[in-house]
């Protein structure tokens, strides 16, 4: 049995028929073909699959695709606008907030919602808010700096 599902991803509408058990992250990666959203675990710990769904940062491995029917979704591919990097992306580049790059899309999406909640977060807030995203390369030092950089530049841009 397949069910119809329609969602808007990065401003574009996608309609498919999918198995009800298909996870949203696999729908995004396999059906839609946006592979920037990664799968790093099977227990919703690593956060590599973090996306924005209706403005909320969610782990796309914790939802079925059919649960996202009608949703507005932003993935890492939708963060840069008109060829211009989002300040969070820029911050990760400027501050060397990534090494292997695998956790990075999830980190950036988690940071996007964090900075909505806390436009000028303290270091402690940043670390606490990243509790659901694992990185094995950076030791988080430069991820914290990258988000601080983004916060400063986003504040200056407003």
């Amino acid at each position: 049995m397949k069910l119809p599902v329609t969602m808007t991803i990065n401003g574009q509408s996608y309609s498919h028929e999918v198995e009800p058990r298909l996870l949203l992250v696999h729908h995004i990666r396999e059906t839609v073909g946006l592979t920037g959203t990664h799968v790093g675990c099977d227990t919703s710990q690593c956060g590599a699959c973090t996306i924005l769904m209706n403005g909320q940062a969610v782990k796309a491995c914790t939802l079925f695709a059919v649960q996202a029917d009608g949703a507005q979704i932003t993935t890492i591919e939708g963060m840069a606008k008109n060829g211009e990097l989002h300040p969070i992306q820029q911050g990760f580049w400027e501050k060397h907030g990534l090494q292997c790059g695998f956790c990075t899309p999830g980190m950036i999406m988690a940071a996007a919602q964090m900075l909505e909640r806390y436009p000028r977060p303290t270091e402690e807030q940043i670390r606490h808010q990243l509790e659901g995203n694992l990185c094995r390369c950076t030791g988080y030092h430069n991820i914290v700096k990258a988000i601080q950089w983004a916060a400063e530049h986003m504040a200056a841009g407003k």
Partner: peptide, 16 residues
């Protein structure tokens, strides 16, 4: 020097 591989990783265009 800023890393030259980063633009693809921060935009979700890495190829694993």
């Amino acid at each position: 020097i800023k890393r030259r591989e980063d633009p693809r990783f921060i935009t979700g265009r890495g190829s694993y």
